[in-house]
Amino acid sequence: MKIGVCAKVTPHADARIKIAADGSGIDTAGEKLVISDYDEVAVEQAIRTKEALGGEVVAFSVGNKDDDKVLRAGCLALGADKAVLMHNSRADALDVATLLANAIREAGCEIVFTGKTTTDDGTAQVGAMIAELLGWPQVSAVTELSIDGTTFTATRAMDAGLMQVVQGTLPAVITCEDGLNTPRYAKLPDIMKAKKKPLDITDVATAGGARSTMGAFAPPPARPAGRIIAGDPATAAKELAKLLREEAKVL
């Protein structure tokens, strides 16, 4: 089976971010780059699917030209066979989805995995958009998956702890939730071998900001200074209950 995985290269989840003084953007230069958390789960699931059913894993990414090192370490060294890096830094969610969908169609994938969202912008739009553009069904935020022939059964995590078990027919897009699997680490010999695996880098054009633009970047609003309520537990609790009712008006 031809298995696709869409993985974004982002700063690591705890990266320090510098916001430009004029609010024009966010600078994460110097912070370690990784495969976005949920996309790591997607890469693992793609490789497990290959191990169970045979075939080939192709990793697709839209990002910066120098993301190739991370794609080698985070996809090829783990078991993906090939990577396609499309370079475009101005793309919006639909641009990214369009580039990925076209590449997936060209590669002839029968199933595509991606993370349910990313740890940077976190728009959580691209996976479902790819499915729409390909005319495939998708299942978002999947915590369990089994594949039998062209039929798949998935459990999806919805709002407020609600889960659904769903069944569909391949081809399909699966977006991965935490807990679907535990991603593996690369072994040294595999890191060496990954250097010889094919990784195509292409420059791609997009509409580039025609549909939406981002600006006014800023840290989140500071919270007003709080107050420590002193006294023994009973006294402090009584005072707090009164403040919640009379001052904060939330009870």
């Binding site: 971010i17 916001i19 976190g122 549909r211 006014a216 800023a218 840290p219 989140p220």
Partner: peptide
């Protein structure tokens, strides 16, 4: 974005 460590305006054209 970035787990709430930054905010931005998205202008929808």
């Amino acid at each position: 974005m970035f787990a709430g460590r930054a905010e931005a305006d998205i202008t929808l054209a």
